[in-house]
């Protein structure tokens, strides 16, 4: 759906390229996670993809056509949810949404959306009086009000309580099931792991790694099985290469010992993030 080739970008007053020759593809109907530490070029790439930053080098095609050749029809197709709460504070939530709704040709019924994210009863409250979590949910609804084909979500569940975060994640997955495509950034690796079909890691303006969470976990993980068992009151650990789990010593251990835990050496996206980008997650 979006193909990026050798994208490079330097801010007008900047000396170095913030995005330095990255290439990737976001396929129709997938959730693509774009991950990286602050200042890695992630935000700049997003701004370029939503046509807020002109003057880039390289090629970007949306549905087979150069992104720069699109005018308002591109914005009819996409929905963007920003990380920071953005709304006209002295307008009610409903007034905010209705104002934006009038800018689109195709729109959806707001009632089911607002009910789903738990804002329907508070729709006549001024957006400025909303809590941070409510404002984020309002951002999310605004991104969906034009029935988009493509969603750009920046930290969509950051600052949202677990119950509402679950609802929003379900809505993202349902959007995908209906054929929608999502470009997602998040520091919550649990969300990324759960939602994304593929992820790309960016650091210092360059793509460091790309693939499905499963493939990356296999690539960066250890092909081992760790067994913890108790013997004479003491805890013991034994490590088996994956190739040896069909051999008698492994089976004997399972049969004869009091097994407490059994772990594969699979790694987590968080560990891959740190390994690939060289930066620790702060939140």
């Amino acid at each position: 759906m979006i193909v990026v080739k050798n994208l490079r970008y330097k801010y007008p007053k900047g000396k170095d390229y913030v995005v330095n020759g990255i290439s990737f593809e976001i396929r129709e109907g997938e959730i693509f996670g774009f991950l990286g530490p602050s200042g890695a070029g992630k935000s700049t790439t997003q701004k370029i993809l939503i046509k807020l930053l002109p003057g880039f080098a390289g090629e970007i095609a949306y549905q087979g056509r150069a992104l720069s050749s699109y005018t308002d029809e591109f914005y009819q197709d996409i929905g963007v949810s920003f990380e920071m709460p953005i709304s006209f504070s002295k307008l009610t939530a409903l007034e905010n949404l209705q104002f934006f709704q009038r800018l689109y040709r195709r729109t959806v019924d707001l009632e089911p959306l607002l009910k789903r994210v738990g804002l329907w009863d508070e729709r006549h409250k001024k957006a400025g009086e909303y809590s941070k979590g409510m404002k984020i949910r309002l951002n999310f609804v605004r991104a969906l009000l034009n029935d988009p084909k493509f969603l750009f979500l920046d930290e969509p569940t950051n600052g949202v309580d677990p119950a509402n975060a679950r609802i929003m994640k379900d809505m993202i997955l349902e959007f995908k099931q209906r054929g929608g495509t999502v470009f997602l950034t998040s520091h919550i690796m649990g969300d990324v792991d759960e939602l994304c079909d593929r992820v790309a890691f960016i650091a210092e303006g360059r793509l460091r790694e790309e693939g499905s969470p499963r493939d990356l976990k296999l690539k960066y993980g250890k092909r081992t099985v760790k067994v913890e068992y108790r013997e004479n009151g003491e805890l013991h650990t034994q490590l088996f290469p994956m190739e040896e789990i069909k051999t008698p010593p492994f089976f004997r251990l399972l049969q004869e010992k009091e097994i407490e835990t059994l772990h594969s050496g699979e790694t987590t996206l968080e560990e891959i993030f740190i390994k690939v980008t060289g930066v620790k997650l702060r939140d």
Partner: peptide
């Protein structure tokens, strides 16, 4: 209120 951000990603 950073509302121009939201407007510039509409038509």
């Amino acid at each position: 209120e950073h509302t121009v951000n939201s407007l510039m990603v509409t038509p």
